[in-house]
Amino acid sequence: MTKPKIALYWAAACGGCDVAVLDTNEKILDIANLADIVFWPVALDFKYHHVEEMADTSIDLCLFNGAVRNSEQEEIARLLRAKSKVMVAFGACACFGGIPALGNFTTRDEIFERVYIESPSSANENRTFPQTLTKVEEGELDLPEMFDTVMTLAQVVDVEYFIPGCPPPVDIILKVVDLFASGQLPPVGAIIASDKTLCDECERTKEEKKIARIYRPHQIIPDPNRCLLEQGIICCGPATRGGCGVRCVKANMPCRGCFGPPPGVIDQGAKLVSAIASIYQSDGQEDINRMLEDIVDPAGTFYRFGMADSMLKRKSLPQGERRA
């Protein structure tokens, strides 16, 4: 019997998901024993044409990390979808848009303006921007087209499973490999994590959820045993799926929401607005104004990893720039 084939790809991502796969340490050898890795740009020297030459559905499992924010990533997502039996959105970016999807609060033009003109290290008097096609003496050079809107993998192709996390923890990666090896993969559409919220899995002492002011993490040294929210630190635990091992909270840092919304919650950010505002104590408009001041960047805080997957998906584009 031939070994199953695995492909790994990174799109709009930081590389942390690939590092998480390597964090399986010696277990990576088990994975290599179990399956042939046929494509993994970060680690192995395979090219796109190698994948193009494969027969459709000849890859058994594709772990796709990163969001989709340009035409190359979209093309490879479609290519790998066609070649793979099982497509997995691997990590917060592929599942929900992740940090790259914070770019949905701006547009391609604004990003180009910032990067190529305004940034202090740029000297670009001729306003040269990347072009998708450039003619030079030797011929035409092309670059992928950057999109205005960052998308999740599932907004581009069909996805069988979702493994959330920034990055996915090693125990979940190994669990998926085990499930795959033993042919016990869950029903299609499953999110491979916990079905509880992070708060349900957090062991900190929780008393009454009432806060009178909000601290940003650098403004306070939190008690390591008491609920961070009750100490006035915005923790996304109430509206975040568990299964991560409560990694951040154990390190005395609040949950940032990288496991996405828990079961039953459609919009993680909206749920957090509801949760945080309802525990804030107020005696009148003055207190409410203070809360609004204290929560400096609600959209960026509550949709830190979930922008592309949220109900609104992006900041409204200016009139006239809306795509059909």
Binding site: T149, A154, Q155, A308, L312, K313, S316, L317, R322
Partner: peptide, 9 residues
């Protein structure tokens, strides 16, 4: 018009 991800267009 939210003009979000392609999936809902």
């Amino acid at each position: 018009s939210g003009n979000g991800g392609k999936a809902d267009d």
